[in-house]
Amino acid sequence: MFRRLREAAPALRFRFDGEPLTGVPGDTIAAALLASGRLALRKSVVGGEPRAPYCMMGVCFECLVEVDGVANRQACLTPLTDGMEVRSQSGARTIRPAAGQEP
């Protein structure tokens, strides 16, 4: 799908849907996922169709992912950091009570 022009030693470890992957400093989450061969990052909110990063500049919102428990982050604008837990989103988000605030 994509290869890296510069072979840098992978220095950042992260997980996507639980699977361990690596990236390099300077990557956004979206770039690290593209370099790891992950294209579809979510299922659309109405039809449940697979969607992939489209504009890579924060305009299209196709790359929304959950990052360290926070939903709807733009993967193309979020720099990758070591140990990130990234999860794909399937369909529309639901509102969950914050920890310790369950009714």
Partner: peptide, 8 residues
Amino acid sequence: TAGLVPTG
């Protein structure tokens, strides 16, 4: 940004 080149 990431030196990514499409393959295929």
